[in-house]
Amino acid sequence: MNKGNDILQELQSMNSILADIPRIMPYAVPDDYFNRFITSIHEQIQIEQTPDPVTVWSKINPYIAPDGYFENFADKIADNVLTTSVSIAHNDPYEVPDGYFDTLPARSLTAAKDADKQQPTRIISLRRNMWKQVRWAAAAVLLIGLGVGSYEIVEISQPHHKAERMLASIPDKDISEYIQQNIDDFDLDMIVSNTNISDEDIAQYLNETGVDTSKVY
């Protein structure tokens, strides 16, 4: 680098007041710092170059397993599993008849053969059957829809209430017979006592409907 007057000349050409200021660094530096600096750098580099302790640690396992421990390890585990399974089966609270499982395969086979003889296996085409059912279901849905729609239209066009129409369609004779058969004296008394109908009106009604008034009074 050029340690001449270039900078000063440059600053003077800029008419800068910095040209008149001494370039003294006021910061203090510890005694002998620069002489000792190289030593600290070498120490740092040595630290940097020292291998990571983890990579030089021995990976030998100090623990010892019993001789032949791993040779039969799998068999031991299998034995333990079987023993555990058996003990779990013995703990089952339900009882099975003696020799049940011994004869079960033979009995199952016999039962299966008998079933074959009695009723040959019928193979049903799922696809064909399914489409048949779908067609019927579609027809049913269509009919229900038409029925409900028609009913609603008819219902809306009728001026009378459904119950009223039903009552109107019952013959008077049937009503009279029903009353004679089902209403007892107690009911008649209760109806009379709880309405404002006069005795005369009742008598007239009974006469018109053909009821024997001697049974009432």
Binding site: M25, Y27, A28, V29, P30, Y33, F34, F37, I38
Partner: peptide, 20 residues
Amino acid sequence: LVRKYQERLYWHVRRMVVEH
């Protein structure tokens, strides 16, 4: 190399970060 450049680089850094 360190001895040659340590002071120049030191002051270059110190003027920026102030503390020794």
